[in-house]
């Protein structure tokens, strides 16, 4: 590539008709769902934010010394205290009379497990922070160890599939219900398969004075063992099988869901990912675990009322539609 073209592209990048909080050159894996989610969140949140980022993939791949991918003020916390750090900065800013919104970013390890206590405290004290959990369902940064967010029966390096046990023994923690129990103004789930939905939810949360929580399902090609180009298809299959409920809660009460137009069997989701490969066979254990996961998906569908009804304008199809000139909102 000629030098002129490179300069033209740098200039073109500067003139892109949207804000983004992250530059490329970061070291995320090919097809990284978390990187995509972080791009989308920072685009919707805009430049007037400060980000407190827990230890994890996002922190590591975005800030390889001596570079940073961040185009907004960003601070790295410990694994366990992104919410506390965000709360502290928010309090300081309030003292100074500056209304900057705080964002706290963490993975599922830093949210479901290690940082759970500080998250709970931040919400309980009512800080004006949007806490975003990028849920890729295991400790990917340290080598794909299971977390309390890892789904049942998924293989990780610490819950391997083998003769004794078909992947993780335990269930995925229902974190959203725990967050909901804080009666916070707004909590929602989203997925990279529906970027427009993420943006709408970030904007909604940003407009609220008080603690808000957004959990974004973000496939990890490395840890979930799928081809990098399948990130969106995997995420979408999660939604359409019912395994990834996309919902919004206000004061702990369910106010909206993304309804599924056509429910798909969980095998549509499982067969895309190597972490579930051991569940695809005909052996009794595989059959039983598949049925178990199907039952969990059905349970989600029933609990949240995820099936589209006649007359639903917005559903799992319409939320992703495109046309000339961009997405259809």
């Amino acid at each position: 590539m000629s030098k002129t073209t490179v300069l033209d592209l740098r200039e073109l990048r500067r003139r892109q008709p949207r804000f983004t909080g992250m530059d490329p050159g970061h070291r995320a894996c090919q097809g990284c769902g978390q990187s995509l989610a972080a791009h989308i969140v920072t685009e919707a949140a805009g430049p007037d934010v400060i980000v407190a980022n827990a230890t994890g993939c996002l922190e590591v791949f975005s800030t390889p010394w001596p570079q940073t991918a961040w185009r907004v003020p960003w601070i790295h916390s410990l694994f366990e205290n992104a919410a506390a750090l965000a709360a502290g900065i928010e309090t300081a800013l309030k003292q100074q009379g500056r209304p900057t919104k705080m964002l706290a970013f963490a993975g599922d390890g830093g949210t479901f497990d290690i940082g759970f206590q500080t998250l709970s405290g931040m919400i309980e004290r009512g800080h004006n922070v949007l806490y975003v959990c990028f849920d890729n369902e295991a400790y990917m940064n340290t080598g794909v160890q299971r977390s309390s967010s890892t789904p049942h029966a998924a293989a990780t390096t610490t819950s391997p599939a083998g003769r004794m046990r078909p992947g993780k023994r335990h269930l995925k923690k229902d974190l959203l219900a725990i967050i909901a129990a804080h009666h916070l103004p707004y909590a929602a789930t989203a997925t990279v398969a529906y970027p427009g939905d993420i943006k709408a939810k970030v904007r909604r949360a940003m407009a609220i004075e008080g603690p808000t929580f957004l959990m974004i399902h973000a496939p990890c090609p490395l840890g979930w063992v799928h081809a990098p180009e399948l990130t969106i298809k995997v995420a979408r299959a999660g939604v359409e099988t019912g395994l990834t409920p996309i919902v919004e809660l206000e004061r702990g009460k369910l106010v909206s869901v993304l309804p599924i137009r056509e429910k798909r069997p969980v095998t549509d989701y499982l067969r895309l990912q190597g972490r579930f490969r051991h569940l695809l066979g005909d052996d009794p254990v595989a059959v039983q675990e598949r049925e178990h996961l199907q039952a969990l998906a059905d349970h989600n569908i029933e609990t949240y009322g995820l099936l589209a009804r006649e007359g639903d304008v917005r559903d799992s199809v319409t939320a992703a539609l495109v046309r000339r000139g961009g997405a259809i909102r």
Binding site: L36, H39, I40
Partner: peptide, 12 residues
């Protein structure tokens, strides 16, 4: 011109 590639690139 649907913006999908522009929106979905994890590396911008």
């Amino acid at each position: 011109a649907c913006d999908n590639c522009w929106n979905l690139c994890p590396d911008f």
